[in-house]
Design a protein around this nucleic acid. Sequence first.
DNA 1: TTGAAAGCGCTAACAA
DNA 2: TTGTTAGCGCTTTCAA
Lengths: 345, 345
Amino acid sequence: MPVTIYEVAKHANVGIGTVSRVLNGSTQVKDKTRQRVMEAIAELDYRPHGFARALARRKTRMVAVMIPHFNGYFFIDLIKGIQTTLCGESYQMILSNVDHPEKADDYLQQLVENRNVDGLILCSLQISDAFVQTFKKLKLNVVLVDSFHKALDSIVVDNRHGAYQATKYLIDLGHRHIGMIAGVLASRPAQMRLEGYMEALSDHQIPFHEEDLTIGDVVTCNDGFSKESGYAAMKKILATKQPLPTAFFVSSDVQAAGVMMALKEAEINVPADVSIVGFDDVEIAEYLGLTTVRQPITEIGKAAAQRLLGRLSGDDADVAVQSESYRTELVIRESCRRISSAEPS
Amino acid sequence: MPVTIYEVAKHANVGIGTVSRVLNGSTQVKDKTRQRVMEAIAELDYRPHGFARALARRKTRMVAVMIPHFNGYFFIDLIKGIQTTLCGESYQMILSNVDHPEKADDYLQQLVENRNVDGLILCSLQISDAFVQTFKKLKLNVVLVDSFHKALDSIVVDNRHGAYQATKYLIDLGHRHIGMIAGVLASRPAQMRLEGYMEALSDHQIPFHEEDLTIGDVVTCNDGFSKESGYAAMKKILATKQPLPTAFFVSSDVQAAGVMMALKEAEINVPADVSIVGFDDVEIAEYLGLTTVRQPITEIGKAAAQRLLGRLSGDDADVAVQSESYRTELVIRESCRRISSAEPS
DNA sequence: TTGAAAGCGCTAACAA
DNA sequence: TTGTTAGCGCTTTCAA
């Protein structure tokens, strides 16, 4: 039904090869011939068929992006960055949502099998060595975001430093009893954030007490980085702890939102009674007036797409595997207050 | 490099046609042969090539989803619904972001030209008749979400009814001077919400005053449904209006967030001094304690995908064009208060 | 029940 | 500079 190069060729009185050359911007075509072909294309309203091209070229100009669950403002910003960059190079983005972490492998398998993408951007996903093998074998370019594997390119944020910033900020405000509400530690970012917190404490001679650390339960998936997990964690703390820390570093804004809800219910005021610092600076942080650690998420998305595009274009094809790390930035809002007298932890 | 049906065929000592039949679950294959083929497939770790299939079948099993700008919790929920449904039928989703409304047509054109999708889901996008023609010509199935065209399937929410609910709720609380902050009226949903508001007023014999209606400026794109637009609108009202209405119906939650910010800055309390009802019930509404009109967004996404899938599968191929409408639901939180004495508007 | 062959619409190598 | 031809990996007649 739709018009093909054959018709264009016939119409312009040339061979299909010539049409193809014109289509692909070859310089090896006489101007006059090109003219004729272009006219024929215009007259017939011809459009090259993407799939046929992909088959013949063995390149699809599609990239799959896999993210765990859409709930999470984090990913929106990320996708925005990725999409913008991809789109600029006229690549298309196939979005794969992993609603349940167990299924991640299945989905990945499916993507790989279909072989309809030139590359993969995998976000916040732990990748097994087996898959890395498969990627290599299939010569599938892969960029990791917010996770790490030594054999794969990755774009990450310096989570440890961010957590350090947050904790140090609280210390500088005079806090000496600082609790942390962490994500599930199986995830590397969660792990790093914990380390940054501990490091800041120890650098300032503040002893770390086991009971000041609360791990967000895996109420939902999401690495425990969920509102529910924050809410539950604070509820638990409120129920058990005698002296409430004067401040908390919460390892994600979404969790912090939950924490603040629990606090509000208990009629504990932020920042009057307790100071809170979050992590991510997703949009709700602004609504909540939450002081937090900003990740340049959209930028990270762009960087990831660019790295992949570089590999795909062949320019960076032989560059060694890289892990690019972005710095965080403390965004000060209204959820923390200075306290004057340092109380003995 | 990767293994093809030819190799499988050779390995199993059959023709490629037979392999293809096995692959496609044809019943016309002797059990024993099928067995042999299956074994060969397993042994060679063969995977059918999606693109080649697509070319031969003239079906891609891909659907493009176009949404304006990702900013907007609305779209996340929507996409979630779409993706889940699509994925269940092993369709892939190509996500197209329209960062700037002017470009919508270009992007659409590009999608159409590529001819690599079987169908389109277009969200909150005004479609020109010219495109409708193109869709028909290309036999491209299209489902509209949150917008309308008489020749295309659409899934919408009853915006007018929702706005009516919101306004009536305020009236029932005793408010008689109710302002509205609307989106840009070029968009049909914005238009409908205004109509619902007016209808509720008139049904209750409350005169409508021009000066109580503020149209969100097009500060950003987003139909004026943005935080900035809400903020600006309220600032303007505060600057000019003498008697502030006792309540406002704001035509989206995101706008309402901006409105509340402006109010907070002016030290006007919600709900003590003024009541606010939003629209959408996106996640921030909960954080803000905003009473709002809930749209079943994820459901709508699912419905849209299902409708498209129905068309694609051929089951609903000949069903007449339909516009499915969803009802909204009032979600009562803490942003409104009852006022006792009805003041003369 | 099966195999062979003709496409699907294009690219790219090879000749001319 | 151009046309011809052989794939790309699969589906789908058409015969056998």
